[in-house]
Amino acid sequence: MNRRTFRKIKNGAFLALSMIATSAGLACLAAILWTLISHGIAGMSWRIFTQMTPPPGGKGGLLNALYGSATMTLLGILVGSPIGVLAGTYLAEYDRDSRLSVTVRFINDVLLSAPSIIIGLFIYEIVVVHMGHFSAIAGALSLAVLAIPVTLRTTEDMLNLVPIGMKDSSAALGAYPWRTILSILYPAARSGIVTGLLLAVARISGETAPLLFTALNNQFWSTNLNAPMANLPVVIFQFALSPYKDWQELAWAGALIITVTILILSISARVLLALLQAKGGSGK
């Protein structure tokens, strides 16, 4: 075999391997979605949205878990995203290169990939231990901590995309930076910031580990923020590992609901971003 054929064969072999790798990755996504749909549809019914989680062996739904998840996610975003947006604004508009900003940016990237169970332990130590009991507030706070890095990162990136001319024009009219930021930059970067919020919701609504020992779980309907609250991920965790068939079916139905919600959120975030880029591209 001459050198040329050898090189051709080697090239073909590696390219084939890369195609196999890609198909394997896509196959995993397809397999997971297929399992979720086939198992989840079986457990789907109106009861899911109208009844509470049942005791072992009984029929029931996921209403309290859905309510708890929605409440804590919403609270988490309400607390976490303003901090993320403001900090992102500071990094993008007030202070780009000081030692403080560089450190904050670095720490934020670390927090972005830090294990969520650590955040759960942190909130347990500072909230649950002091309050003396598990509560929805603690759960929402741990989700807020997870939402901050996502919103900070996207806000900073999106503010950086706003054309500098807009900022200069506002400054030339005599506006202070706060006025420029609130009246010019935020509206200009609005869909970008909304994308960040969607990504943050997608990130925190499926989190299980930090809720295990902050919000815990609750088998009953509860709107009390100062008490343990049911939530979808922990219910899925508990029900899937149980030996009861009804519970397992509910777990699959819950898994399908949560995955579909998160996939819709991430796809809409992507679409928003694509629209934004298309607009920015034609504007230049």
Binding site: L29, I32, T35, G206, P233, T259, R270
Partner: peptide, 24 residues
């Protein structure tokens, strides 16, 4: 499309990988 599909795999919550791993 393939790039987005790979990124969507990253958005699937870890608990889903857990039950899929256990039951499938």
């Amino acid at each position: 499309p393939i790039g987005v599909a790979v990124e969507l795999l990253a958005a699937v919550p870890s608990i889903i990988f857990g039950i899929w791993g256990l039951f499938v």
